[in-house]
Write a protein that binds this DNA or RNA. Structure first.
Lengths: 211, 211
DNA sequence: CAGCTTCATGAACGACCGTTAGGCTAGTGC
DNA sequence: GCACTAGCCTAACGGTCGTTCATGAAGCTG
């Protein structure tokens, strides 16, 4: 017994995860540039030099976190959309999943969003391209909804920006210990989004408006 | 004649403005923590030590910029709302002005929003309180609109978060050289917001939906 | 011109940064 | 038991940071 992590113990891959967890919390709280490798190491229970056994640089930690977040976000939203057949149904499912995912991983979401500018040109361009592609998925759902007569909106691009901004922002204010469960918050956002697009409320699987 | 700013010239208050302008651009582009006093000084055409004649610290520059932005934003929105008589009219005017103001001052908006965490506890609490108060103004307009039967919304607090996030986000993507004029973007957001709240389109001064 | 204030300078301080070099040690493969 | 590697360490590197200090030119006041 007693495999407890002692001072100086070797933990292998567990160390890598400890580094990532420490980095996500510190980056989210202090910002990437205000966080030092020494802080990350201390929070992970190792010495600064040990980080370089797992990551080639500080920036590599950041890009790893951001790539992981985008991977899992895209996977979750793709899966949610796959079960729908109409543009309105797809968008409702995508919005719901986007909100829930951001509520479950607020720090990773925040770090991915707000630390884009901390990246050097190449990874920066890569991440921006990924987010543009993700936004394009929402815009296309809106455009298809307009063509199908399900939505009525002046400008699908502006609408997609507005939708993603308000839903992503849930990561900024949602409190797991607060009054509103995440599922309720997600449902409210689906209502707001569909209403903003002038969606008819018929057969999209939506519940009643009143609480 | 020739009062041109030479190397080593004394510019008095103009130096203060040069520092603020340089800081706003650099903070917005690189982030507060990634921007050095030496960069600000170089961009303002002075030596680092001269900054300390106008500001007691680096953080004081940031708080000055943030306070100025909030002052002018509140003033602009208050003035816009003052001319309206119904909750829906007030909210429409507030959204319009909020969007326009953020489109006109995107860097200041971005610095105010995203560098809250760079502040030390006391100024941080002050700025958060100010933003909470500003958000409360929007929430109250929504609540009054619900009471007056003009809006239909599950949760006014969540709605106000959603509205402010999508409108504030305009500062992140609006391009003055792009296709859409700021006034059009503002109008689209008024449409989206009013629609999301289930507002009736009667006598709120709104134009037609199409185009 | 004398005295004072304003505005800016060059030089330097101690602190902390990301990163690296090199060594120790526990565990594995033979 | 011996070589080898993975994992982590201590120590230190060169560099940059925010800030301070002493100094002085320029301009106002009398």
């Amino acid at each position: 017994m007693a495999e407890a992590v002692e001072s100086g113990a070797r933990r292998g891959e567990a160390t890598r995860q400890a580094i990532e967890l420490a980095a996500i919390d510190l980056f989210a709280e202090l910002g990437y540039n205000a966080t030092s490798m020494r802080q990350i190491a201390a929070s992970a229970g190792i010495r600064p030099a040990a980080i370089y056994h797992w990551f080639p640089s500080k920036e590599a930690i950041l890009t790893q976190l951001q790539d992981d977040f985008m991977d899992r976000l895209e996977e979750a939203v793709d899966a949610a959309v796959a079960g729908e057949s109409t543009p309105a149904g797809e968008l409702a499912a995508a919005v719901r999943e986007h909100v829930v995912f951001h509520g479950l991983h607020p720090r990773a979401a925040f770090v991915t969003d707000s630390e884009i500018r901390a990246l050097s040109p190449e990874p920066k361009a890569r991440l921006i391209a990924r987010r543009d592609e993700y936004e394009g998925m929402f815009r296309q759902m809106i455009e298809r909804g307009v063509e199908a007569g399900e939505f009525e909106v002046s400008n699908p691009a502006v609408a997609s920006y507005a939708i993603l901004l308000q839903c992503t922002g849930v990561a900024l204010w949602y409190d797991p210990a607060g009054e509103l469960p995440l599922e309720v918050i997600a449902r409210i956002h689906v209502e707001l989004v569909l209403a903003s697009l002038g969606a008819r409320r018929n057969g999209t699987g939506e519940r009643e408006l009143k609480n």
